[in-house]
């Protein structure tokens, strides 16, 4: 197990921990807006750590750039989607 693999697996484990925290948050929180907080946290940070771990383990610049793109896409869509979902939930209580 070289240092790169150890660090990569460690980062992925940490990302998985954030996913578990986000899932527990989405189940336990009382209303939509606090659940929204949990989901976007798990999205951005969990996936960011997993992508960083993946990038470290596959030591290739092109792959790392692709992973950064995936993470950026999820971060932006999560942020914008979270904002719009909150506005939708605020407007009508369907």
């Amino acid at each position: 197990m070289s240092w790169a693999e150890l660090l990569g697996v460690g980062l992925m484990g940490l990302g998985a921990v954030f996913f578990v925290a986000g899932t527990v948050g989405i189940l336990r929180f009382p209303d939509v807006f606090s659940r929204l907080h949990a989901v976007t946290k798990a999205d951005n940070l969990g996936l960011g750590l997993v992508a960083a771990g993946t990038g470290i383990m596959t030591a290739d610049g092109f792959v790392a750039a692709k992973l950064a793109l995936v993470w950026l896409l999820i971060a932006v869509s999560g942020a914008i989607g979270g904002h719009l979902i909150a506005r939708h939930a605020l407007r009508d209580k369907t």
Partner: peptide, 16 residues
């Protein structure tokens, strides 16, 4: 909105 949140979380964990 709750259901959409869960769908988004499932989508992201799929990517992970």
């Amino acid at each position: 909105a709750d259901r959409m949140l869960a769908a988004q979380l499932i989508g992201t964990s799929g990517v992970a």
